[in-house]
Amino acid sequence: MAALAWLLIPLFAAFGAAIWGSWAARNRTTGDVTELAGYARFREAMERSDSGSDAA
């Protein structure tokens, strides 16, 4: 029975590593679209704003 336990430990470790690897390599590009849209709105707002002072 002890030999079976020693064989199951690496099996569980490999299974856990496979789960972690698939989680770490997941596609995370869904948030980029909203962040880029927000950045574009920020740039447009900064180009539109006129403080009335000459900063050059």
Rank of each mutant, 00 (worst) to 15 (best):
M1F: 02
M1Q: 05
M1P: 01
A2N: 03
A2T: 01
A3N: 04
A3G: 07
L4M: 13
L4P: 00
L4C: 07
W6P: 01
W6Q: 07
L7W: 00
L7K: 01
L8Q: 06
L8T: 04
I9V: 14
I9Q: 09
P10C: 05
P10H: 03
P10N: 06
L11Q: 04
L11V: 14
L11R: 00
F12V: 15
F12A: 15
A13D: 06
A13Q: 06
A14E: 04
F15W: 11
F15L: 15
G16F: 10
G16D: 10
A17H: 01
A17E: 05
A18R: 02
A18N: 05
W20L: 15
G21A: 15
G21R: 08
G21E: 09
S22I: 12
W23R: 11
W23P: 01
A25C: 12
R26F: 13
R26T: 12
R26K: 14
R28M: 15
R28E: 15
R28F: 12
R28Y: 07
R28K: 14
T29P: 00
T29V: 13
T29A: 15
T30Q: 14
T30K: 10
G31P: 00
G31C: 04
D32P: 00
D32T: 04
D32C: 06
V33Y: 03
V33D: 11
V33L: 15
E35Y: 00
E35F: 05
L36E: 08
L36W: 01
L36M: 12
L36A: 13
A37V: 08
G38E: 09
Y39S: 13
Y39A: 15
Y39V: 14
Y39G: 09
Y39P: 01
A40F: 04
A40G: 02
R41W: 05
R41G: 08
F42W: 07
R43E: 13
R43N: 10
A45Q: 04
A45M: 12
M46E: 10
M46Q: 11
M46P: 00
E47L: 15
E47G: 04
R48F: 09
S49G: 09
D50R: 07
D50H: 03
D50Q: 06
D50M: 10
D50F: 03
S51N: 10
G52T: 05
G52K: 02
G52H: 02
S53P: 00
S53Q: 09
D54K: 00
A55Q: 07
A56F: 09
A56I: 09
